[in-house]
């Protein structure tokens, strides 16, 4: 039973159980190729947001502005796509670059607020999230931006060798973040700061620069998630994905990331994302409403926290 001793091990078991349970509940529909493809298209957008949440949580912070950044970047990209004529791949590339730039700038603002001005991350990102969403509303007047060139659909709606593009994108990002956290000095510093900020300071880590990079990374990831949402919805709007914030926090915590900082693995986050998607699609097929899903997500979040805390205190004594 060694598998059950690590958070990730328990999560792998939970993911498998949920998969089997859903397969048993709706065998012909849940296990169909169609459902598998549809799930693979659905989860990357909030999974990327969860990655953004994970890197900030590792430092003991949180980024409540990810959905705001995603929507603002999507709206900037959408505006470029609809205003700049000529269409084609060139415009799409420019739009994506602009969106990533917006994400980086927004993340930089969060980073400066948290690191240089010393604001608590909850408040800094709560305030900046309101600002990003507010700018998005002010730019569009609250309505959706639509009418993109065909090339835009590539990132969200196409497949490469039969694998959905968003899934490939998420896979690459997850791999990159995982390598960044485990194989680079930056990753070690980041987790060290999360585990013990004072020790990190005494170890002569440039904390301000590190925190700024963390929030910039989070902002850039949020902007990429925004691109996926925009491409899949074929439009951009200031209030898309408002439920994704809770979902991103939930996935990170479910994935074993310690909200006080210091511990978390990308593989855990990936397993948590899969669990949530299996649960979500499966319940949908059994005919459970969206509100019941909210209830189940919330209960799951609390349950996982109870189990993790109980295991942690059990180890210490």
């Amino acid at each position: 039973m060694k598998l059950l001793h690590s958070t990730e091990g328990r999560l792998a078991v939970i993911a498998a159980v949920v998969f089997l349970a859903m397969s048993a509940l709706a065998p012909d529909r849940f296990l169909s190729v169609q459902n598998m493809t549809s799930m693979a298209f659905q989860f990357p957008e909030f999974a990327i947001l969860a990655l953004a949440m994970t890197v900030t949580m590792l430092t003991g912070g949180i980024d409540l502005s990810v959905v705001g950044i995603a929507n603002l970047s999507a709206i900037i990209a959408a505006t470029i796509l609809t205003q700049v004529t000529g269409g084609g791949a060139g415009t799409v590339l420019i739009a994506f670059a602009a969106a990533t730039g917006v994400g980086v700038a927004a993340g930089l603002m969060n980073g400066v607020l948290v690191a240089s001005l010393g604001l608590p991350p909850i408040l800094a990102t709560l305030g900046s999230g309101l600002i990003f969403t507010g700018i998005a509303i002010a730019l569009t007047g609250g309505s959706a931006v639509m009418g993109f060139p065909d090339a835009t659909a590539w990132i969200g709606n196409s497949t490469v060798l039969g694998i959905p593009t968003p899934l490939i994108l998420f896979g690459l990002l997850a791999l990159a973040i995982s390598l960044l956290l485990t194989r680079t000095g930056f990753g070690v510093k980041l987790r060290m700061y999360g585990a013990n900020p004072l020790a990190a300071r005494f170890a002569a880590i440039n904390i301000d620069a590190m925190l700024i990079r963390v929030y910039v990374l989070s902002g850039a990831l949020a902007a990429i998630a925004g691109m996926v949402v925009m491409s899949r919805a074929n439009s951009a709007k200031a209030d898309y994905g408002s439920s994704y914030l809770l979902l991103a926090v939930l996935i990170a915590v479910l994935g074993g990331v310690n909200p006080y900082g210091g511990y978390g693995k990308v593989i855990g986050v990936v397993l948590a994302v899969l669990t949530m998607q299996f649960l979500s699609s499966g319940l949908n097929m059994v005919g459970v409403s969206n509100f019941a899903r909210e209830l189940i997500w919330g209960s799951l979040l609390i349950l996982v926290m109870i189990v993790n805390t109980w295991r942690a205190t059990g180890r210490r004594t």
Binding site: I62, I122, L246, V249, L250, V253, P259, Y260, S289, F291, A292, R293, E294, L295, I296, W297, G298, S299, L301, I302, M305, I306, T309, W310, T313
Partner: peptide
Amino acid sequence: VLIAVMGLPTLIVTLGTLSVFRGFMLT
């Protein structure tokens, strides 16, 4: 109970109960 007795982080607990209360009522 969740915060005082079980010692869970307050933001995560109340984010969870927010959707539990709302989801329970609407379902």
